[in-house]
Each structure stands twice: as C-alpha cells, then as structure tokens.
Design a protein around this nucleic acid. Sequence first.
DNA 1: GAAGTTATTGTAACCGATTACATTTCAGTG
DNA 2: CACTGAAATGTAATCGGTTACAATAACTTC
Lengths: 335, 335
Amino acid sequence: MVRIVDVAKMANVSTATVSRVISNTGSVKSGTAEKVLEAIQKLNYQPNLLARQLRRLETKTILVVVPDITNTFFSNVLRGIEAIASEHGYQVLLGDTENIVERESGYLTIIRQKKADGMILLTARSSQNLLEEIAQEYPVVLACEYIEGSKLPTVSIDNISSARKAADYLIGLGHKRIAHISGPLGVVVGRDRLRGFQQAMIQNGLTVEPFLVQEGDFTFESGFNLMMKFLALEHPPTAVFAANDEMAIGAVKAIKSKRLKVPEDISVVGFDDIKFASVFEPAITTIAQPTFELGKIAMELLLKLMNNDELEKKQYMLEDKLVVRESCKALEREM
Amino acid sequence: MVRIVDVAKMANVSTATVSRVISNTGSVKSGTAEKVLEAIQKLNYQPNLLARQLRRLETKTILVVVPDITNTFFSNVLRGIEAIASEHGYQVLLGDTENIVERESGYLTIIRQKKADGMILLTARSSQNLLEEIAQEYPVVLACEYIEGSKLPTVSIDNISSARKAADYLIGLGHKRIAHISGPLGVVVGRDRLRGFQQAMIQNGLTVEPFLVQEGDFTFESGFNLMMKFLALEHPPTAVFAANDEMAIGAVKAIKSKRLKVPEDISVVGFDDIKFASVFEPAITTIAQPTFELGKIAMELLLKLMNNDELEKKQYMLEDKLVVRESCKALEREM
DNA sequence: GAAGTTATTGTAACCGATTACATTTCAGTG
DNA sequence: CACTGAAATGTAATCGGTTACAATAACTTC
C-alpha cells in the first residue's frame, strides 16, 4: 500500500507538504506542488480515508434507513437524497430493514459508532425514546414518516389531509360504501391515512363501517387478501381506498379475479404513485408524493444539522397531489 | 464523546484491558471484566469504528454497485448479498449508478480509498482495463454482468443460452417473424441476449431480419417506442422477445395502444422476472434468474477473496428458468 | 519456599493521515 | 547589508482505538 510518506519521500518533501497539496490548503510553491503531484501520479497514490476521517472526526457519509428498497417510492426518495449528498461530497450508506422493526435499531448503532455523520430515516417504527435519544446527540432527519409530538426535524406530506383528499374524491364520485385497506396501524402513516379517511367520511355524513376497514401491511398480497374479504360480503363496497399502491394493485387483482371490473364495478384509489401505478391496467388513481423533493429537502435539512446551522424551520410539509387515472368512476346505480 | 480511556479510567484499568474485554480476546479476570462492562454501561460507550478500522486496516464494509436500484431484479440480488454479508458482520454500502457509466468509475475509487474491503459489481460497463487493474489489487466480484475473456470471479446466468431458450419457446409455438428488442449493445448482457436470439433463429432455419432487431436501453419507454416501430410495419412480427421485463411491458403497452391483443395478436417474452411481471396483465412470460441466489453466491465468493482463501471455482453459472405465463400463444393463422 | 509456569495486566508503538506550531527561505526595504 | 514580514516547509502531536511485548501476579510442583 502506498502511503503519504512514500509520496513525501519520492518528492523529497515532508508529509505535511504532501497533505497540503492534496487538500489544497496552506501555501505551497508551484514547483514543489508539481513534484508532489508527479509522485502521486507515479505511485498511483490514494489517500486512506479512514486515517483522514479519524483525524478530522468525520466520515462524509450519511446513513439512510429504508423499510423496503424494492418499493420505487423509497428508491425515488433515495435518489433525491443522493443528488444533494453527492453534490456536497457525502456518500450514502443504505440500510434496508426489509420491514423488520428490529433491524431499524440495529442501524441506529451505526451512527453511534461514528460510521456516519448523520442519518435520514424513511421509516421510524422503533421506540420513540431510543430515537429521540439518538437525535439529541447526532444529526437525524425523519422523512416520510414522522412521530407524533416529536420535535425531530421532519420532512413529509400531510398524510391525514392527503388521505382525506383521496376519500373526498371517491365521495365526490357518489360512492357511499367505501372500504379502506389501511397500512399497519402500528405505524404513523398507517394511522394517519386511516384517520384522514375517517374524517372525510364523517364530514360528509357517511358512516365508517368497522368491517370495511381492514389492516394491511403495505404488501401486494395483503391488498389482495383483504379485498377478497370485502368481496365475500353480500354487499361489497363500491369503492376502496388503499393506503399504498401495491395494496391497491393487489385489490384490483382480487376484484378482477371475481370477474368484476375496475372501475366499472368497483373504484380503487391508491397512494404513493409508484412507477407501476401508471403502467398497470387500469392505471391507478393515486396520491403522488413529491418523492425526489422529499429526499432533497431531507438531505438539505441534514446538512444544516451537521453544520450546526440554525434551522428556520424544523418540520416541512410538502404538497402532494391527486393523480386521476383510470381506476375510479362515478357511481351511477345504487347497489 | 466517550473514549476508551474514559472507560479505562473509570474501571481503573488500562485501555488494553478494556479493548480486550470489548473484543473478547486475551484473558481477563472475570472480576475485572465486570468492572469494565459496568463502566461501559454507565458511560454508554461505543467504540469508534474508524479508529479500530484504521488500526486493523479493514472496514468490514463492502461496496455494491448497481445500475438501477429501482429495478426489483437488482434489489433482490442485493438482498441475497445483504443476507450473507450481515451474517458475517459486513455492512453493505450501496452505489446506484442510475445507468450512468461514468458514475461506475467514481465508485471504483471508493475501494481504493479503503472505504470498503471489497466490492460486488452488478454492472460492469466501464473500461475493462480499469476494472482488471482494480481487481488485481482488491477483492472484486462481478455478478449478473460479466466481461468476455476476463478472469474476474463472476456469478451469472448463461445469458446466451437463456435467450436461446426464450426464443426457442416462441419458435416452438410456431412463430416465424420474431422481433427482438435488445438491451444496449455496449453491454455484454445486451449482446449476449441478442446472440442467443440469433442462434436460436438460425438453428431453426429462420432468418433474422435486421429491422426486427432494435436496440433498447432497458427502460419501459424504449420498449414502448421500439414496439411502435415494429407495429408501423406492413407485416408486424407475430412475437417479440424483449431483453428485459420493463421493455417487455412497454412493448405490451404499445401493442395494446394499437388495439391489438397480447397474446392473441402478438406474443411477448421478457427477461428477469421482476415482481411486476407476474402482476401485470397479461402476466409476462419471462426468464427467471435466481436473484437471491446470485447475490448469495457473489457474497460468498467475495468473502473468500477477502480471506485470501483458495477458490475452487471462479466463474459460477446459475440455472435460470423459463416462467410460462399469459403473454404468449401458439401461432394459428399465417400473417 | 524456590523455581517454573501460566494467567492477568500494563506500556507504548502503531495504523495513515492532518494540522498547530516551529523553523527556514526569500523578497523587499531603509 | 542587516532587518522585517510573509511565504514555504518541516517537526511532531494528534485522532481513538489495537496489539506486540514487557511486567507483574498467581498458581504448581518438587
């Protein structure tokens, strides 16, 4: 391995000078700099980052914890994060919890071990205490999911109002028996989207039938299975709001498996606007979150935290929008 | 920040003893160990990994470079890698090139800077020389894509024979005018799948019409656009083999946009078996690669390389299989 | 109880860079 | 030409652990 001393020796200078040339700090005569650069070239020298980082006590790495990297929603947020990160010379270490809660806390220790300068959580399901404790000491930003009553810096959409928007849309189309396939209720987004759904129903004078709210786990399969439950009813709902697109697509598949049609027989609304939502047939009407933007702002926030800059604002709520496609239809007949 | 000396002081021992307790090496009296552990607890001490790694000259981190993390094919391979990696105490640093070739070489320097002990490339599009040079000095494993004539440790399927298998299937169904939407021909997988297609055609006495082979770039959009070109022909092909599922789905969408049906009017075969291939309608007939397994074996290979173990075998070819679903149909009438 | 082992603990060098501080070089000035 | 201040360079401490080696303690054996 080529070390800085090897370069120094070859160029006939001290390691300090080499270091100065590399990092472009301090003053070095142009002649000397040339000699050094030449030696670096010749030896194909690459500074050992571990050593540098140890000395500077920073890693120029941030950790991003994702619940499911397979989901394009998260990978798109990730891209927003990466764009800003690399702009500022930061590398992104990815942690995929695969929806296993325990893995999350595993990743929390990475930051305590100084393998990363900060972290962005796209999932926050582990104990709030642990999280707040870590956030006291290290720069942490929550994106997409937030924790009620917590003062952690957060970037997200307003899941309650978004869900309300989705339900309002169905109600506006004349639907009255509307079912909801929720996300896991142990997770804030799951609860919030349910709450938004309930608010919309109540505000419009509709009742939320307990059986028409079923708890899913954000997977395609759960969407399929829960929809099958609804379909087994004597009077199935005329519309379904699923808490994410994967479950919405699962629901559509279930409906089709019963030889019913979407949207003619049953309308379906999803959430997230994953890539596939527009490709699927029928194309899924859904709530689009500004994924890239979410990632971008989260990273910018984290940069400020790591710099100890003053934050004008700690919680950001971004605008989502309802993307109307083909999976919903106005209710004509009574069921 | 709590350092090892703080623990040592509190427990009234030397740093060496503390270190021994932490890493469970050497002998320490159980009484002393207890004192140390207590101090660690009390101070909430976490060893600084940078320092440890610098001393040990290892990072316990591997780098995985992916062309597109949004593609479930790659994220599934990644899961295989992660499973084995974490089993052995390794962390996975993810690099997403977003299909930009230059980014790949950017990631290559990470390993030279000792930020990772080894790397697995799920894409190998940059200069072969650079790659071989790096591989001389550092542990590198290629997965999914391989480089012709290179002696790098590789795990992949046999793209040529797989593509032949796909084409043979269409030929077996009676198709004669078969088109191919290839991957980028600058990439080995792209070339190999094309070659397999050509071999199958020729072996079955069919001609490969030049216009019926179009070069795509693995995106949904390119599949759509190229299929539109085929559809503009006076005699469109009766079957299409796309070099990946995204393009296959794009092709199906194009076909449907012309009010034609899959598979009744045109049969389509994809490649990779991404999650969505089975959900899409019609469900796409495709070549399934053992993704998890690919990742697993790649990581096992890398572990051996990093350990300087003898490799019994450097190139692994895994079995793929043709998954027959709904997107193909036997040709009945002549077109 | 002395000699010989073995178990336990401590001291200090080391990993490879960065950087505060010290020293040398050099240009400019009176 | 001596003097001054700035520029260029060097020396050595430092980051926070690990570990080779040295020193000490504890235990056997005769």
